[in-house]
Design a protein around this nucleic acid. Structure first.
Lengths: 172, 172
DNA sequence: CCATTCGCTCAACACTTGTTGACCCAATCA
DNA sequence: TGATTGGGTCAACAAGTGTTGAGCGAATGG
């Protein structure tokens, strides 16, 4: 739907707070009241707009796991779906978004921790892997750090891979 | 000053947008108009409140560099100054904060890139090191990722160190 | 042909925000 | 004592917000 697309785009660009119903409506060439009629509230519009199904991690060996992680954080070809960007954009300033991201990352960390070679602190190592990748994604997609702009995602992935494997634990 | 302390605290907790002059004034037991009289505008109050002098990187060898990086991103004892947290909290949703962080990270990346062993892509590797650490800090300090809470900063630093060295490039 | 529904729009409400100008009141000074 | 200054407060403004309820016009159904 046109409204959801405009909403997703604006939420990804400006975050929850700074995106107004009126702006979404204007971007979709529609009356603000219509947005309310369809979605009931700004929060609900946000929820619908950012809805994204996280691909579950199905990897068994570490190599595959790293690749799936890189992909799920947009560090391989294709980048992130705009809904995920919208969620990330708001996660530091919106309680609901923060909660969602926290449990979402938590789940991912649990998966990764379970899949890690039985090093010490698998849960902690997993958390570091995931948050480190999150940081790269933020710098790349949300902050536009200049040294990362225009760098193809695979190149980034290639440089990250060995470091992640070290962080994941002693080679099993 | 009491106003600046309250402002810093609130900015760090809620970000620029969601922190109101009235809330800052109330927290400092002061009239909102007085805050304006002292600082002229909310933006200026923010600037003064988050002002923080980034410790320059003076390291020569990689080990020392990594330690300084960990420290400057709050991953060693002491955590980050509240002003830095406030800046980071707002960086995804406030243009001015985003600009500030981008150039600040850019500077840090340049320093790190210059100090790296002459691997290929030193600038890019430096950017990945810095943003990865940024991500861990966000997860730890701003998002409260459960697997990272209550973990002493040195422990985190210890696990990160080897991975960072790998990411920084082939051992010189 | 009239009544009714349904998608949509308009204008407005209630509230919050940053910001300002008039004002007050105690201390200073002549 | 009387005038003046200066730190501090009060009430208000103008703009922007999410949200709502009355109403419009066209399609639908009898």
């Amino acid at each position: 739907m046109r409204i959801l697309d405009s909403a997703r785009e604006l939420f990804a660009e400006k975050g929850f707070e700074r995106t107004t119903i009126r702006a979404v409506a204007a971007a979709a060439s529609v009356d603000p009241a219509l947005v309310m009629q369809y979605f009931g509230s700004k929060r609900e519009l946000f929820s619908q707009a950012v809805k994204v199904v996280p691909a579950p991690l199905t990897a068994t060996d570490t190599d595959e796991l790293v690749d799936q992680l890189l992909a799920s954080l947009g560090l391989k070809l294709g980048g992130l779906p705009e809904g995920a960007l919208a969620m990330m954009r708001s996660m530091l300033t919106d309680q609901a978004a923060a909660d969602h991201v926290r449990v979402s990352l938590g789940r991912q960390i649990d998966s990764v921790g379970a899949a890690l070679p039985a090093a010490e602190d698998p849960q902690l190592r997993a958390a570091l892997v995931v948050t480190a990748l999150l940081g790269v994604t933020i710098g790349h997609q949300l902050l536009g750090v200049t040294a990362l702009r225009e760098v193809p995602a695979d190149h980034i992935a290639a440089l990250l891979r060995p470091a992640i494997k070290v962080l994941a634990g002693p080679p099993g």
